[in-house]
């Protein structure tokens, strides 16, 4: 468990003044994650919103060592940094204890960087990969990714006259990484800071690779007022479209049970990307969403031994 009073005493790892949109969850994700580390942190990031808004030369928002390489190789890049660390330590030319965290958006993680991530997880580098999942290619202007939810309107899955937004359900990346049998995998939401920070602490204490998929609402791409980011992030958990759980050495556990379960449709109503699915004639989309959320929840309960 994290203590917010203690966290406030720590040095700010990511300074203000960066150029992320008002209401962007990604910098919050970064600050929460980095504050969770008791050791110095070296950070890598994929190309994407986080990287372009924090490293505009000659400025940088990063008060910790930071490296960006390309879009699809955040995991491979940081696996190289971590390997150098081990090599230099072995040779006695470096003597500090350091944590390594790689960030990527859903584009850089679910899609173009999946191979790089899979490879790094399989090889067993001692690094934490955090996917800040905002459900589309937001940096290039809201194009669909395999993390975009069913029905969502994006600029490449537009709600048209014949096709009502994205026609596929979201890829379940957290499960894919769990299938790599790495020691620590979790799903978190930026709206539940203590749950997330605690997960980061567990991940960093793991002797091996770890992965956290954190829901990171994008006010621009999802279409909600910037002050509602945290509320949207929490409601995704309450309606079970984004359950919070962790997999520790193969044991699945739900880490947060909402007191009152809401409908995913209520969550969707708050976002303009789903506006069209509430038009008459699209009832089947709503039904499919409800069915899918329920199906996935039951599957998760089974995996957690609670069904």
């Amino acid at each position: 468990m994290a203590n917010i009073k203690e966290l406030t005493k720590k040095n700010e790892p990511l300074s203000g003044g960066h150029r992320a949109c008002a209401g962007c969850a990604a910098p919050v994700v970064v600050r929460q994650a980095l504050l969770a580390s008791d050791k110095p942190v070296v950070v890598g990031s994929a190309t994407g919103c986080l990287e372009v808004t924090t490293t505009i030369f000659p400025y940088t928002a990063w008060n910790v060592p930071f490296i960006h390489n390309a879009f699809e190789n955040s995991a491979a890049n940081v696996s190289g940094v971590e390997t150098a660390y081990r090599a230099l330590k072995k040779r006695g030319s470096f003597d500090k204890e350091v944590n390594f965290i790689a960030f990527g958006g859903d584009g850089g993680t679910y899609d173009i960087g999946l191979q790089s991530l899979s490879g790094a997880m399989e090889r067993g580098h001692r690094m934490l990969y955090i996917c800040y999942d905002n459900g589309a290619y937001m940096n290039t202007g809201i194009q669909r990714s395999s993390a975009t939810p069913f029905g969502a309107n994006t600029t490449t899955s537009p709600a048209g006259k014949k096709i009502p937004g994205k026609t596929q359900f979201k890829k379940d990346l957290t499960k894919i990484i769990a299938a790599h049998n790495v020691p620590y995998v979790a799903q978190a939401s930026v709206g539940y800071w203590n749950d997330f920070i605690t997960k980061v602490q567990k991940a960093l204490a793991t002797d091996g690779p770890s992965f956290i998929n954190v829901l990171s609402p994008c006010r621009l791409g999802w279409g909600f007022p910037p002050e509602e980011t945290m509320e949207i992030a929490r409601q995704a958990v309450a309606c079970r479209i984004w359950p919070l759980y962790e997999v520790i050495n193969g044991t699945w556990k739900i880490t947060f049970q909402p007191k009152e379960v809401t409908s995913p449709l209520d969550w969707m109503k708050k976002q303009t990307r789903f506006r069209h699915v509430f038009q008459p004639g699209n009832e089947s989309i709503l039904q499919k969403v409800e069915e899918q959320v329920e199906k996935e929840w039951q599957e998760l309960l089974r995996q957690c031994g609670q069904a």
């Binding site: 070296v42 890598g44 490296i67 390489n69 390309a70 699809e72 190789n73 491979a76 890049n77 940081v78 696996s79 190289g80 940094v81 971590e82 390997t83 150098a84 660390y85 090599a87 230099l88 470096f94 191979q115 790089s116 899979s118 490879g119 790094a120 399989e122 090889r123």
Partner: peptide, 19 residues
Amino acid sequence: VESEHSAMSACIGASAAGA
């Protein structure tokens, strides 16, 4: 690594790290 792309990507990370 699992590909040449990752080979050079990891080389970049390692070299930037100081190796």
